[in-house]
Computed example of a mutant assay.
Amino acid sequence: MQVTQHPDRNRNSCVALKYNLPLKSTDLNQSTDKQRAAWPVSVCRQRFTAVQGLPEGGATNAAAEPDSDDEYIELPEAQHIIREANFGGDLVADLRAHFEKRLGNPLEASSERFCFDWWHVPDQYTLLRCPANVFFDAGLHERLVDALAEYGERVLGCRGISPLWLSVYVDGCKQEWHTDAPHGPFAFVLSLTHWEERRFSGGETMLLQPHVLDYWRSFDSSKGTETPQLVTHVPPQYGQLLVFDGRIPHGVRLVEGTRGNPLDGRVVLHGWFTQPQPFIAGALTSEEATPALNDCLETLYEELGTLPPAVGTVTVKLDVTGETGKVTDLAFLANTLVARPSGAADPEDVTQATLACIAQHLAAARFPTSPGHTAITIPLTFA
């Protein structure tokens, strides 16, 4: 698949660090049954010592009790759905205006109207679609790519985006349940739909709730379940960027009620964030930061190999002070980590132990001194 890369813009944050150690999920999750059995299930779930109290050479034991004076970092819950309202400022209005201009007068037999594919896969997909770079002019398309790529870098740690699609749903259009795991760690939908003025029903993005994918572990025979307890419906509000874990089965509810006019339908742009890679911004260059980061990752990988397996993407941002080269702040930007079934280990314990391990090692990293502050974004992919 082709990948659209974000331009470097002459700043360090767009220079991908070239790891000597490949960031491969097989390295992160391989461990023996004996090692997994030795993993302490009692590891703290909510907080761990991150900045103070760490030895110079590495992290403390994940299960150790922190001192009362230590600083803490909250370990995040998995977030499989992100909604960003009013994405891109005037960008969405300009995209919608271009859409209406090209399709506004059905009596004009212009070649600009002859670009949509009626995509129909029986029992799976029915919709109108067109490559976004074909439909929008070059300048507008570039603005769209730049806005999405900047968001992918800043929030998800993803350097690329897939080629974008413009899709229109009129009466009878839908997407049945499917997953997008091979395309990238995060899927997205940017809505150009005038949702509040719609003349149709349906059109929401459907996502299975995570507990449904592990149904029997949380099954309660005393409670009944209906659609709201099983499926999350996300309406395509105008200007909303919906980002979600592409591994989760999802689809689009059947659109009914707007038979002919595409201007009255569900209009969205969609694709995938791809190429999770580290970024550096600030005083340190990638060449200066890479050796220290590799040293830290080597020990991190070794300890992760002793934990039960998990799958997903975790993106962490480090703030590094120039005076000492120490990490002064650590923040989790994205987290879709879930535990693979593994014996009697509690899934929450597995993910919390993995997150604590990542944070403790990265917080203990030591970088070269520099004239100023540096921010490093590190995505870790487990598969």
Results as ranks from 00 to 15, higher is better:
residue 2 Q to T: 09
residue 9 R to K: 09
residue 10 N to V: 08
residue 11 R to Q: 11
residue 12 N to C: 10
residue 13 S to I: 07
residue 16 A to E: 13
residue 16 A to W: 10
residue 31 S to H: 10
residue 32 T to Y: 01
residue 37 A to Y: 00
residue 38 A to C: 09
residue 45 R to Q: 04
residue 46 Q to V: 11
residue 46 Q to L: 13
residue 49 T to S: 14
residue 53 G to D: 13
residue 54 L to M: 12
residue 59 A to R: 12
residue 61 N to R: 14
residue 61 N to D: 15
residue 71 E to D: 13
residue 72 Y to H: 09
residue 73 I to Y: 09
residue 75 L to S: 05
residue 77 E to V: 12
residue 79 Q to I: 04
residue 80 H to F: 07
residue 83 R to M: 13
residue 83 R to C: 14
residue 88 G to S: 07
residue 93 A to V: 00
residue 93 A to L: 01
residue 98 H to L: 02
residue 110 S to M: 06
residue 117 D to Y: 09
residue 118 W to N: 09
residue 121 V to S: 10
residue 122 P to Q: 07
residue 122 P to W: 03
residue 124 Q to N: 11
residue 124 Q to M: 13
residue 133 N to M: 09
residue 133 N to Y: 09
residue 142 E to F: 02
residue 144 L to M: 14
residue 152 G to Q: 01
residue 160 G to P: 10
residue 168 V to R: 02
residue 175 Q to V: 12
residue 181 A to G: 02
residue 185 P to M: 07
residue 187 A to S: 13
residue 190 L to M: 07
residue 193 T to E: 08
residue 201 S to W: 00
residue 207 L to M: 14
residue 212 V to G: 02
residue 214 D to M: 11
residue 218 S to G: 09
residue 220 D to Q: 09
residue 223 K to E: 10
residue 223 K to S: 07
residue 230 L to A: 06
residue 231 V to S: 03
residue 232 T to P: 00
residue 237 Q to A: 13
residue 246 G to P: 10
residue 247 R to V: 05
residue 271 G to V: 00
residue 272 W to C: 00
residue 274 T to V: 07
residue 276 P to K: 01
residue 276 P to D: 03
residue 277 Q to D: 08
residue 278 P to F: 03
residue 278 P to W: 00
residue 279 F to V: 03
residue 280 I to F: 06
residue 281 A to P: 00
residue 286 S to T: 15
residue 300 L to S: 04
residue 305 G to R: 07
residue 307 L to Y: 06
residue 310 A to H: 00
residue 311 V to P: 02
residue 313 T to C: 12
residue 318 L to Q: 03
residue 322 G to Q: 12
residue 322 G to A: 10
residue 324 T to M: 13
residue 325 G to A: 12
residue 327 V to A: 08
residue 333 L to S: 11
residue 336 T to N: 12
residue 337 L to C: 06
residue 338 V to H: 07
residue 339 A to M: 04
residue 346 D to E: 14
residue 349 D to H: 12
residue 350 V to D: 04
residue 356 A to M: 11
residue 360 Q to T: 14
residue 363 A to H: 04
residue 366 R to A: 15
residue 368 P to I: 14
residue 369 T to Q: 15
residue 376 I to H: 01
residue 377 T to H: 03
residue 382 F to E: 03
